[in-house]
Nucleic acid binder design. Structure first.
Lengths: 203, 203
DNA sequence: TTTGCGTTTAACAATTTTGTTAAACAAAAA
DNA sequence: TTTTTGTTTAACAAAATTGTTAAACGCAAA
């Protein structure tokens, strides 16, 4: 296998990720992907056999990458609030590169419910488990109002991910440029922390 | 025009809404819609001319309906916190019937950015405007930490809508049945209110 | 009854999209 | 140089999807 193979294979995957996860073109055709990568459409079948297998491949890669980032934050031995601050940062930053990733997963799993289990095993190693002990401790110390780990994590995911998903809509409603929306999302890191903890975010 | 026409036209629209907004089949074909409605596929073209025009129609209807519900809550003369409680209720309840509506809009607007303006004009009459005065008053009275109306509304939308969008994923991660997830969503109404206001939700 | 009109269907046509294959090509090995 | 191996392309085939049309159907009015 020459170096070219790895290059073009990666090129195709990168361009596909761009179309699906960055631009949100959930129905991008093999032709559009090939055009984006500047190669012949047949190459997609040469490297991945079928459109579906290519989707599985890039989703797999991306989920594993995201999972690794998230896991390393949540399983670190930082104090609880610092850990959550890092988590918010990681989630929003990752979302800035692939804002439509969740959207893709949602529509993909709606069509192929059988794939959900496999996907979920990759996306989150039940992140609520990773923080449940520390969360309970906080609650016991009366530093936080009682809340289940599940609701706590869903709150966090929602606050971080939704504004990324809904980018085009929110941006239009509030009349923001791309730059302004980016700034809005960065601002949100603090907002989210404050919403969860009712205090300023540490750095 | 006979009563039949209105019946089948509505039947087709209802079944299409079910496929797109309830089941999340973003790529449902005209054939699938026809099958779901138990009619010949050509009827879709008879009533709506093309697949795209039908999508525009059902999305229009649904957004207007949702907008009306939301607007009537936010423009009522209830006290602020009661109003927000109603809003959370309305949003989650509506989401329970059409969990994938946002998802549909997101992917549709990603493909056809020109349509965003039209959609947004229907979905929200800048809901942040409807509450900004009351919000500022709350903040001035020190009953709430300072936050912009935009961030406040995005927080609310995120907390309400994301768990609906991500239903299949969250349900699988936490191993919930449909009934359990529904219960989880109902619970969330209180959770969301508490997350925003740090106090129990009134009824 | 039959005429007319809106509704529904089946069959067809056109387009889009995916998947296949044989040949051209390039670079390294014999 | 020739061969081999892997890469890329163009052309073709097959399938899926949308859109069109003429005819059948059902029912109400003449």
């Amino acid at each position: 296998m020459g170096a070219e193979e790895l290059q073009t294979e990666k090129l195709i995957k990168d361009k596909a990720k761009k179309l699906f996860f960055q631009k949100g073109f959930l129905n991008a055709t093999t032709q559009e992907i090939a055009d984006e990568a500047g190669v012949n459409r047949a190459l997609i079948h040469y490297y991945f056999r079928s459109r579906e297998l290519m989707l599985d491949t890039i989703l797999n890669e991306t989920l594993l990458e995201k999972k690794e980032r998230v896991r390393s934050v949540l399983s670190s031995d930082l104090p609880f609030r610092k850990k959550i601050a890092h988590y918010i940062n990681a989630l929003v930053d990752y979302g800035l590169t692939y804002p439509y990733l969740d959207n893709f997963i949602i529509s993909e799993t709606a069509r192929h419910p059988d794939k959900i289990r496999a996907f979920c095993a990759k996306v989150t190693s039940k992140s609520s488990d990773l923080i449940s002990e520390q969360l309970e401790a906080e609650i016991k110390k009366k530093k936080l109002a009682p809340i289940s780990p599940e609701h706590f994590m869903v709150n966090l995911s929602a606050l971080c991910n939704y504004p990324l998903l809904a980018k085009s809509v929110l941006q239009t409603i509030h009349g923001m440029t791309d730059a302004a929306y980016r700034k809005f999302l960065i601002e949100r890191k603090q907002i989210i922390y404050r919403t969860i903890f009712n205090e300023e975010m540490p750095d």
